[in-house]
Amino acid sequence: MQQLALILLNGLVYGLLLFMLSVGLTLIFGMMGVLNLAHASFYMLGAFLAFTVSIRLGFWAALLVVPVLVGTLGAAVERYGLRTVHKHGHLAELLFTFGLAFIIGEVVPLIWGRTPVPYRVPAALDFPLFTVAGNAYPAYRLFMMAVAVAMFLALYLALARTRLGLVVRAALTHPDMVGMLGHDVPKVFTLVFGAGCALAGLAGVIAGNAYTTEPGMARSLGAIVFAVVVMGGLGSIWGALVASLLIGFVQTASISLDMPLGTALTRIGIPVDTAVLGDLWQITIARVAPVVPYLLLILVLALRPRGLMGTRSA
């Protein structure tokens, strides 16, 4: 029972973190149709800027200022870069963001160096909040979860319940009509791209100090956010949330299972011939845990190509 509570809690923590990291990506794709390959780079930029700002003005100022900075940079990138490329189609946009990821990846070590920077959790939140089965939970983890939930609610309400959200959604499907009605469609796109980047920056502020802020962080994040977004259904914010939590739960659960693969499959009714591939069945589930998100991704794509909550077909 305690074991289960731990798995659920860890899964929730990890899942919400994944959501925080990937929500900006799915927002931009859903509202603009652009797959932003530089998303993880904006996340990294957020963490490094937060380090610099927090030295001078403290963590709470960084929490407010950095997303605005990264968002502004994102908006500028859209306005002066992506918009010009837009008319050449999706491939050009993809390559543009791909190049951008490399540029940010090289500029960051030029400014901050190649070693990790000492960006630390604020002292006010650096204490164990409660204990489950002898395991302490730091207050900062709860704070991270709260921010992730707030991000979800704010985005969902803004898109589904406000006039602005209506315009944004309409601009994706009927850009000409929205333009006729007197809305500045390119400006809407700039706003959306900026907002998506700001969310990545916010994730950087929050996660950079809980983990390590170093120039390799964008690359090491890379694949997992795409797995979340594709699994959830490209562009679906609900989908990103569900996929993040699913990956979070399944991965943390598999880490805590020391049962060999063969035994596990036999238990759930799939007989395994141990003569074939002998040793492979002896590998524990815990050992394959890091691959589990990608196995899930393939499974989802095979059974439901548009993702869990996706509306468009892949």
């Binding site: 798995i7 860890n10 990890y14 002898g134 395991n135 983990y211 090491s220 815990a286």
Partner: peptide, 21 residues
């Protein structure tokens, strides 16, 4: 006895909890 992939794990909390358990 446990092994983890090099440079891939972001959150070691579940592993630490196994040590604890």
């Amino acid at each position: 006895v446990e092994r983890v992939p090099l440079g891939k794990v972001k959150d070691f909390t579940p592993y630490v909890q196994k040590m604890q358990a």
